[in-house]
Amino acid sequence: MPEGHSVHRLAQQFSSVFVGERLAVSSPQGRFSAGAAQLDGATLLSALAHGKQMFLRFDNDRVLRVHLGLYGAWSFGGDATFRGASSIGAPRRVGETEQASDEGEPGGTASFSGPPAPVGAVRVRLVSAHGWADLRGPTACEVISPAEEKAARAKLGPDPLQAGSDGSVFVRKLTSSVTPVGIQLMNQSVVAGIGNVYRAEVLFLQGINPWRPGRQVREDEAAAIWTDTVRLMRDGVREGRIVTTTAEARNGRPKRSAPHYVYKRTGEPCRRCGTPILTGEMAARNVYWCPRCQAE
């Protein structure tokens, strides 16, 4: 499932290429025809990411709420003014990168006569004068009111990537519960945007066992989790992928060859102490940790 940094990259891309544009909105698949009709011909005012959800706000007081979930993805295309990624989300084809061209370079063709024929089950298609975006396979895709957007966001915890997010809210929630910290970090009402990768990597960096109850996490430790999460997720927005290791930990290898400390490294030696990495099931998801660096 795309984690918060990917959704923020999506919001940035929509802001760059669609905000201020009058959009033709359709549902080639047909499952979202009623929702598309509410948005067709409206102008996109803003794109906001909150955790793993994105809210596209239109000038007719309607909001498109999208949660990609496990299988959702956006694909993009357009003319030479249309910049950014060719696709963001999961899954992507083997070998396909998120970035369509070199950073900052135009990603489209010299002219735009319209989008290509839909490929696969396209739930929503947005078309401007310069490009298009197709959404496939989302967990949630609905048109809501601004009041409903406010209510949906009120259920979410603070987003480490939003300017002005209050980390003290996260600290208070985490340290006041007996629920293991590894479960709480995946709870979007505690903190919005963290997924399985960031959970594993942040807890390793802080030397905290994922099974430790929240009430046994000191406030300064919880604050450090928040600070590391902000740093790593900002890196993720910039890089377009999650890389948590330092150059020293990679021993000169490229980022792609050794991006993580513990995530999906079961049985491999810890990059710090050499102890084999463990994995276990936590709330129906795999969790990874070093039993020495993250002792109880």
Score class of each variant (00 low, 15 high):
residue 58 F to L: 15
residue 58 F to I: 15
residue 62 R to T: 09
residue 62 R to A: 14
residue 62 R to G: 06
residue 63 V to D: 10
residue 63 V to F: 10
residue 65 R to T: 11
residue 66 V to Y: 07
residue 67 H to W: 11
residue 68 L to R: 04
residue 68 L to I: 07
residue 69 G to Y: 07
residue 71 Y to I: 00
residue 74 W to K: 08
residue 75 S to A: 11
residue 75 S to L: 05
residue 78 G to S: 12
residue 80 A to F: 12
residue 80 A to S: 04
residue 80 A to V: 09
residue 81 T to G: 15
residue 81 T to A: 09
residue 83 R to K: 03
residue 84 G to S: 04
residue 84 G to E: 00
residue 85 A to P: 00
residue 85 A to M: 12
residue 85 A to N: 06
residue 86 S to V: 10
residue 87 S to R: 14
residue 88 I to M: 06
residue 90 A to W: 08
residue 92 R to H: 08
residue 93 R to I: 00
residue 94 V to W: 13
residue 95 G to P: 03
residue 98 E to W: 09
residue 99 Q to Y: 02
residue 99 Q to K: 11
residue 99 Q to T: 03
residue 100 A to M: 11
residue 102 D to K: 14
residue 104 G to L: 02
residue 107 G to D: 09
residue 108 G to T: 12
residue 108 G to Y: 10
residue 108 G to Q: 10
residue 110 A to D: 15
residue 110 A to C: 05
residue 111 S to W: 07
residue 112 F to P: 12
residue 113 S to I: 00
residue 114 G to Q: 03
residue 114 G to H: 02
residue 115 P to K: 01
residue 117 A to C: 08
residue 118 P to Q: 09
residue 121 A to T: 09
residue 122 V to E: 01
residue 122 V to M: 03
residue 122 V to N: 04
residue 123 R to T: 14
residue 123 R to I: 13
residue 125 R to A: 12
residue 125 R to D: 08
residue 125 R to H: 11
residue 126 L to E: 06
residue 128 S to H: 07
residue 128 S to V: 10
residue 128 S to P: 05
residue 128 S to Q: 03
residue 129 A to V: 05
residue 130 H to L: 00
residue 130 H to S: 08
residue 132 W to T: 03
residue 134 D to Y: 00
residue 135 L to E: 06
residue 135 L to F: 04
residue 135 L to Y: 05
residue 138 P to E: 05
residue 139 T to V: 01
residue 139 T to E: 05
residue 140 A to V: 15
residue 140 A to Q: 14
residue 141 C to Q: 05
residue 141 C to D: 06
residue 142 E to S: 12
residue 143 V to P: 02
residue 144 I to S: 11
residue 144 I to H: 14
residue 144 I to W: 06
residue 146 P to W: 15
residue 147 A to D: 13
residue 150 K to A: 14
residue 151 A to D: 15
residue 152 A to E: 15
residue 152 A to N: 12
residue 152 A to P: 05
residue 154 A to Q: 12
residue 154 A to D: 13
residue 154 A to V: 10
residue 155 K to H: 11
residue 155 K to N: 14
residue 157 G to D: 01
residue 158 P to R: 02
residue 160 P to R: 10
residue 160 P to A: 06
residue 166 D to K: 05
residue 166 D to R: 05
residue 168 S to L: 10
residue 169 V to W: 00
residue 170 F to Q: 05
residue 170 F to D: 07
residue 171 V to G: 04
residue 171 V to Q: 10
residue 171 V to L: 13
residue 171 V to F: 13
residue 174 L to T: 05
residue 174 L to R: 00
residue 176 S to Y: 08
residue 177 S to T: 13
residue 177 S to G: 03
residue 178 V to G: 05
residue 178 V to E: 09
residue 179 T to N: 05
